[in-house]
Design a binder for these strands. Structure first.
Lengths: 154, 154
DNA sequence: TTGTCAAAGAACAATCGTTGGTGATAGCCT
DNA sequence: AGGCTATCACCAACGATTGTTCTTTGACAA
């Protein structure tokens, strides 16, 4: 992700206003590797600006996503997660226990749809999601997951 | 998926009651390759039994999923989809336009997390989701998607 | 600076898919 | 048949996200 200053310049160039709330969100996002949810971003932003609303956070995140500055990921945990790291294709490790997400930098370009199996689809990207259990959740099986949906994936 | 008769026997063996509604759902599910949503299953069931409730459909689907007779998939389209085909590992082609899902029978067992990149994860399965555009959606770009979320995926 | 105006914020409530209560009904066993 | 309970249909709630409305504020020109 670009620096808050660069993002401000980009917003300005697109005719968007630079508000304190937006700059606050830029700063919160900067360097965050934890694939935060909208809620956790909101919580972090509130630490700097008590009055910022969840709606504003959602709005700004969607704008950033539409500009390609961050990625919005739906990894089946029930909440959209946001990924400031958009440099280079990368895949994800998702913890079945706590929903934690880790980037996985690996080349899966060999993963393609077998010829003849396209079913008429114009296939774009392949995304690979590995599901497992993170160190913490393996250690503490007793800890209940916070809000995990019991749906399987793919 | 097993036949409605086999499912009835299984339910009975587990002490669950065999109701007309459940048999109706079994029949609707039988041979369905379209990865239906709970809503569409409900609609199909209503064609045979006008009074069946959405709640009952959800309940029965979750029971079937818990028994491993069907799979519940969250593919990022905003609605859980159900897959009666649980025989063998398979992956999915998801249409960005209409949310349609097609099974993809291919062996991606070579897709593994590079050694050293596990980040402490105890890695389970890899799931591969290919995103693209189905034949219908390529042809009719004007047709608006019914209820697709604009979130990217992984 | 100050004025102007549309963009963006806050607060509220709605939406969607899904699930938890609730009496009433129906299945299964003895 | 009788009785125990699972299951049913109906209603209303839930969490995540978005629409609405009214107010505030940034950006640019005067």
């Amino acid at each position: 992700m670009r620096s808050p200053e660069e993002l401000s310049a980009l917003f300005r160039a697109q005719g968007r206003k630079i508000t304190a709330q937006r700059q606050c969100i830029f700063r919160v996002l900067q360097g965050d590797e934890s694939h935060p949810t909208a809620e956790s971003i909101h919580a972090a932003a509130k630490a700097h600006m008590e009055t910022i609303s969840l709606k504003t956070v959602y709005q700004t995140l969607h704008e950033l996503a539409a500009m390609g500055e961050i990625a919005a990921l739906d990894l089946g945990t029930g909440m959209t997660r946001f990924d400031p790291n958009t440099e280079g294709v990368h895949h994800h490790l998702v913890c079945r226990g706590c929903g934690k997400v880790r980037d996985l930098h690996a080349d899966f370009s060999t993963v393609t749809v077998p010829t003849g199996a396209e079913e008429g689809f114009d296939v774009g990207d392949a995304e690979v999601v590995f599901r497992g259990r993170c160190r913490d959740c393996r250690r503490a099986r007793a800890t209940a997951p916070r809000r995990a949906k019991a749906t399987a994936r793919a």
